[in-house]
Design a protein around this nucleic acid. Structure first.
Lengths: 223, 223
DNA sequence: TACCGCACGTGTTCACGTTCACATGGTGCG
DNA sequence: CGCACCATGTGAACGTGAACACGTGCGGTA
């Protein structure tokens, strides 16, 4: 609602949720104030980066003192859009899809699983973690019913692009892709991907290097 | 074995597995030769980046023609260390751990699940996807038995750091962390993380921006 | 009320990765 | 045998993000 015109670098956006989690832990431990140095330690980055990242949100710290945990939590939640729930639909009720549905960590953090859909009519009607599986053809109807914000693709690679197209057509503008495939979406849609095989292959690369010759490696995760 | 002294940028390493997957598809379709432009399209990047990335591996292309799919596949597999299997241990046999064990996609791609361990003795002895769950205290013994290369942390956040310490102590130098927690490892250890909640919160940020004011968003995933 | 110390906020410097544009050299045709 | 075409490989420009260092302002103390 305010004049939120300031641009936040993508790299910073990716770190905000990590800070948020640290702040939640601090709040739970009844710690009222935190310095950039200490927060940096918890988040596994350096202090200068923390200060710069937080400065994009506004000047919420107090010089000579640090940041008020509760206040920063509030501001950050607001900025990340976590003051409201964002209903999620999971497409694909195979191994991964079911695991995600059963995970539970989503609903807790403001991402309730509003629907499960699958292309296989044999799976339609099954109950997974309290949700009935519906057919993917119903996607537009479901999206309209409950205002679904985010679609999670948990299908085999071959189906991923078509599912993405359907999600976009249903008006869903945020997609998280678990399928091992590159998919294209319009510029107005946000797309993120999680590919387990890719992660393992990256680890394999450095492992290989370590065994083969003089040690070279990335010490820190680069998400 | 060779004088593999050239340094490959981390960003490039993260893209190699994607190229690899595209090449596998091409090989399956009996396509013998591929241009950087076409490969770029498949991988969802631009052609210049493809050429630069591939040039780090060596000069494996032919000017005026393109890249030989089979040959490039071979060279890339070698570079990524995929000519051998890398046994994996999954720590934590909860929802996520079981899903990963059942997934199957790992073994196919050269990352056989060699062991499952958990701290909960009630779970020890259970069978998951053909593997018997063993106690985490046995980790050093298991690691020595089969040469385990990679450890996957699928525990709750609270246990993650201790598990990481134990993996490192057992001589495992590559870790993939699914727990929603920041963990520290020695510089000689490779660490990558996958955090589902973080991914959703990043999507939430852009979704929020889109609803609130003039549309701003990252069109492409940035892994 | 004035001074001192401390931690934030930020302008600057530096390194990395991306993009561009073109020289290079291989292929095939006439 | 030579020429024209074409896609690779790469140096250089550009942009973004990381690291640094210091100015700034607030709180505490005497």
């Amino acid at each position: 609602m305010a004049e939120r015109a300031r641009r936040i670098p993508e790299a910073t956006v990716a770190r905000l949720p990590v800070y948020l989690r640290c702040l939640l832990e601090l709040a739970e431990a009844k710690i009222a104030t935190i310095s950039s140095e200490r927060l940096a330690e918890l988040a596994g980055v350096n202090a200068a980066k923390v200060r710069k990242d937080l400065s994009y949100l506004g000047s919420y710290g107090t010089r000579g003192v640090g940041y008020d945990v509760e206040y920063l939590l509030f501001q950050m939640s607001r900025e990340l859009g976590l003051t409201q729930d964002w209903p999620v639909v999971i497409v694909g009720v195979g191994n991964l899809g079911q695991a995600l549905a059963n995970y539970g960590g989503f609903t807790d953090r403001g991402f309730p699983i509003a629907a499960l859909v699958d292309a296989d009519r044999a799976k339609v009607g099954q109950k997974v973690h309290g949700n009935v599986v519906r057919h993917i053809d119903e996607l537009p109807a479901i999206a309209a019913e409950v205002g679904i914000a985010i679609g999670i693709i948990a299908t085999p690679a071959g189906a991923a692009q078509e599912v993405a197209d359907r999600l976009v057509a249903a008006g869903i503008a945020s997609i998280l892709n678990f399928a091992p495939a590159v998919i294209a979406v319009p510029p107005s849609t946000s797309l993120r991907k999680v590919d387990l095989a890719v992660e393992l292959q990256i680890l394999s690369f450095y492992q290989q290097r370590r065994s083969g010759s003089i040690a070279v490696g990335p010490e820190r995760a680069a998400n």
